[in-house]
């Protein structure tokens, strides 16, 4: 049984949590409430008039096959970004953890990409893969592969996944490395003495002990893929070709800021809020059970 420390009376505890409640109310509940309210209207862009449509905006969205397809696109995109960025980071962290000499330099170099803003990263990758003047696409052409992410949906998806994962690898690497270094050496040495080879030690000891870090990164990376990859997609594909890379957040932007359709945009952000909420609950309910703290 945990020992519970309780306050006497209500005033002090309320006072102590008040700042947090106020901040959450002002910066989260108020804007979220506004979004919910606005999602019930079709306003004109200048805010001169608005018409109440009830759930009309939601009906308009959910009957739109392109909006429904955007859910699948978002799922594929976030899944791939999470797997690629966490997988690569884990491999690099395991290798960096075994390094004795030069590990400082190696780590510093690996952290650099994190300092590059997503939009800039997008432009960098776009340059390399530009269908006509890109270095990489030129080499691919020499090998007989005709790279064209402007028309090919699979290649476009691949490119935005790589560009989004690239900067994220640094972030994940940092956490994995810290996690690895927190694992007591004695446990690993004991296993080594018992005859466990590297791969067995990794599978049965290191990876399970790393699970809190992995779980944390899983949540954070999915949220990243959902919300913060906007810059990359905007610069590389602008959601194309044919909506192949239009994730939910990008559609909120496209409809709200390009299309001036604020009602639909608000309804989409409400849907997005619900989706991410459900996703996080699911993660904590089903995956966290398997995490060893």
């Amino acid at each position: 049984m945990q020992k519970r420390v309780t306050f006497k009376g209500w005033l002090l505890p309320l006072l102590l949590v008040a700042p947090q409640v106020v901040v959450t109310a002002v910066f989260f509940f108020y804007p979220a409430g506004q979004a919910v309210w606005q999602s019930l209207f079709i306003p004109d862009p200048f805010g001169l008039s608005a018409q109440f449509v009830g759930l009309g905006n939601f009906e308009f969205l959910l009957t739109d096959p392109y909006y429904r397809a955007s859910f699948v696109t978002t799922g594929v995109f976030s899944g791939l970004v999470t797997i690629v960025s966490m997988g690569v980071a884990l491999v690099l962290a395991v290798m960096a953890d075994r390094l004795i000499r030069g590990s400082g330099t190696y780590r510093t170099l690996l952290i650099w990409p994190y300092a590059v803003a997503p939009a800039v990263a997008g432009v960098l990758w776009l340059f390399m893969f530009n269908t006509r003047v890109g270095v990489v696409s030129w080499y691919l052409g020499q090998l007989g592969y005709d790279w064209n992410h402007v028309l090919n949906p699979t290649e476009a998806m691949g490119l935005v996944v790589v560009a989004s994962s690239w900067g994220r690898i640094s972030y994940n690497f940092l956490f994995f490395l810290a996690g690895l270094q927190a694992i007591p050496r004695s446990v690993i040495e004991a296993a080594a003495i018992d005859g466990a080879r590297f791969w067995t030690r990794f599978r049965t000891i290191v990876f399970p002990l790393l699970s809190p870090t992995t779980f944390f990164l899983l949540v954070v990376n999915i949220v990243y893929a959902f919300f913060e990859t906007f810059g990359v997609i905007h610069t590389i594909t602008a959601g194309g070709p044919q909506q192949a890379t239009t994730i939910l957040v990008y559609k909120v932007f496209a409809d709200g800021f390009v299309g001036q359709d604020l009602g639909s945009s608000a309804a989409q952000s409400v849907i997005l809020l619900v989706v991410v909420g459900l996703l996080t609950i699911a993660q904590f309910k089903f995956i966290e059970r398997r995490v060893h703290y």
Binding site: V150, L151, N152, G240, P241, Q242, Q243
Partner: peptide, 8 residues
């Protein structure tokens, strides 16, 4: 988007 489908 639709023209891209034709070009592809």
């Amino acid at each position: 988007e639709e023209l891209e489908a034709v070009w592809a």
